[in-house]
Structure formats: C-alpha cells, structure tokens
C-alpha cells in the first residue's frame, strides 16, 4: 500500500490518484475510478496499469484483474481514439437503433468491437446508456448524441474525423 517510486501515469493523474485514495474510509474504494481514469489516459488497462494500481491500493494484481474484468467499460486492449457506442436496447431498438448501428458499420467499415485501420474509430453495440427518451442514442467516448438519424450520425462522425468532436474526459 504505497505510492510507487516511479509511475507510468502523467504527473497530474498520479497526483489525482494520490488524493483519490485518501477520500474514502478504505483505499480500495478508489479502485474502480482509478481503473477508469487510467484507461482514459493510457487508452486501455495494460499490465503495467494493473501492476501499478495494485501497488497503489495494496492488493494483488489478480485482485485488480478480478475487479476490472467485471466492468464492461473497462478493457484490456486498445480501442479507437473515438469509441462509438451504439445503444440497441429496447427504447433505442424501437427507434431504429439497429439501423444506426448498421449505418455506423457501413460508414466506418468495421463491426462490433473492431477498430478502423487508422485507429481513429472503434465501434461497439452497447446496452442501455440512459438516454431512452431521446432515442436512438450513441455515446462517443463519454459524449452523448441523441435523436439520431443516419444523416445526423454522419455529421457527428465527420466532426470527430475533422477533430471538432466533443471530448469530455
């Protein structure tokens, strides 16, 4: 249980982690946020992330993996710079969420959990993202797009391609 001598994280993130573990009655409570924030910075949860977080929390790497593999947003492989997550759950499905998914597949030329060759986009069919009344909805990284049509979707993708997309972190 300690701050490691060297860190793979940026100084800002390392400092944030130092603080995070002190916020809760037990250090371990910081585990899930730490994994998520590491993923935001590193792109995915690498072995090195697992090792360092294990040290920071004071648990075994196995324990870190047990937890991280439980949560569907956490991944151990890189995805595209922009991860397009199309909801197809019931409300979105009724509003042609599958149509949006197919449209994205076509436009991006990739399937579920695949990455475009340039590494810019990846695509994922996801469960309900809490935007049911504004269906069909898509999340790109952490940003929501709702009331979509294939045309609107194209515009959103175009914005990201051109570097104009929202990037909430």
């Amino acid at each position: 249980m300690s701050t490691p001598a060297t860190t793979i994280f940026s100084p800002a993130l390392a400092a944030r982690f130092d603080k995070l573990v002190t916020l809760y009655p037990v250090r371990r409570s910081a585990l899930v946020p730490m994994l998520l924030y590491s993923q935001d910075e590193v792109g995915y949860i690498s072995d090195a992330v697992v090792e360092e977080i294990a040290v920071r929390i004071g648990i075994t790497p196995l324990d870190v993996r047990n937890v991280l593999s439980y949560y569907s947003m956490l991944r151990t492989k890189p995805v595209g710079k922009y991860n397009v997550q199309v909801c197809t759950n019931i409300s979105c499905m009724l509003k042609d969420g599958y149509g949006i998914l197919d449209h994205c597949k076509q436009r991006l030329g990739i399937g579920h959990k695949e990455v475009t060759p340039d590494g810019l986009f990846s695509l994922e069919e996801v469960e309900c993202i809490g935007a049911c009344c504004w269906a069909p909805a898509v999340q790109i990284n952490y940003d929501f797009y709702d009331d979509l049509t294939p045309e609107k979707m194209d515009k959103v993708l175009e914005d990201y391609r051109a570097g104009r997309g929202k990037e909430t972190l």
Binding site: S29, A30, L35
Partner: peptide, 19 residues
C-alpha cells in the same frame, strides 16, 4: 464502470468498496 447489477443496493456497496 459499466455494470447494471451494480444498481442493486448491496452490489453497489461492493462496487463502492472497490470490488
């Protein structure tokens, strides 16, 4: 970090405890 079951109250507590 993505888990419906964590909405169940006791699972939520587990999650908040880093499990």
């Amino acid at each position: 970090a993505g888990a419906y079951e964590v909405g169940e109250e006791s699972a939520l507590m587990e999650s908040l405890e880093g499990k």
